[in-house]
């Protein structure tokens, strides 16, 4: 079971520093999960409920991994980054602006699933202040207002922003931020568009 191998693999690596959670409890929690989602398909189990190694490690350490675990997470998170076909890390900020507001898509199950054609976005505003004209912004993450003005729109910042959105845990292990690229939630082009929304001097984030 991939669920188990991810968890067990994580636990072996994490064996030395104290886990936030008791391994026996984690095993019982996995058994509980298996008993509690009896209508989930195997596909749903694999893509929605089973944990990969990073998820298992962050869960077991309550998102505060000790240094060696943190290094392992960063290393895993730097793997398999893909870039847009045209190689440009900055796309169209207007598309990025749309993606930042889209919080729909990806709901499964029978209670209230999304239609298959529902557009998915980054939903950045759920957690970040960006353009100041959008006042309904959350604060789970830091404010990104004026981000490009602060960091400068250089090749280095473009690469950093692109890779941060692709997988935030390559820089901040167990960050609460979804790994939009690694998890296939956004395409490379959508990530480049979102990066442009943050860095482009014409973007309302920087005006």
């Amino acid at each position: 079971m991939s669920l188990r191998s991810g968890l067990v693999g994580g636990l072996v690596l994490a064996a030395l520093p104290a886990l936030a959670a008791d391994p026996d409890v984690l095993t019982r929690a996995e058994d509980t999960m298996r008993r509690s989602f009896t209508t989930a398909t195997e596909e749903e189990w694999r893509t929605r409920l089973a944990q990969d190694e990073v998820q298992a490690l962050c869960s077991a350490h309550h998102n505060a991994p000790p240094p060696d675990v943190a290094s392992r997470i960063v290393a895993l998170s730097k793997e398999n980054v893909r870039y847009p076909d045209d190689g440009k890390l900055l796309g169209n900020w207007k598309e990025g602006e749309k993606l930042a507001s889209i919080g729909t898509g990806g709901h499964t199950g029978r209670i209230q699933p999304d239609r298959p054609d529902t557009r998915r976005g980054g939903n950045c505003y759920a957690c970040h202040t960006m353009a100041t004209k959008e006042v309904a912004a959350g604060n789970l993450g830091p404010s990104l207002t004026g981000y490009g003005k602060r960091l400068g729109n250089t090749p280095e910042t473009q690469k950093f922003v692109y890779e941060k959105i692709w997988n935030a845990q390559a820089f901040a292990p167990c960050s609460h931020m979804p790994r939009f690229g690694t998890n296939g939630w956004l395409t490379p082009q959508e990530i480049a568009d979102t990066a442009a929304f943050l860095l482009d001097s014409e973007s309302p984030v920087n005006r």
Binding site: V25, L26, A29, R48, L49, Q55, C58, L140, N183
Partner: peptide
Amino acid sequence: AVGEALFFRRAGPLDFSCATCHSQ
């Protein structure tokens, strides 16, 4: 104890757990 583990259990395409939104 199991409930606490589940509260912190991250999974799925957005890496969410209860703790993502409810631990700060």
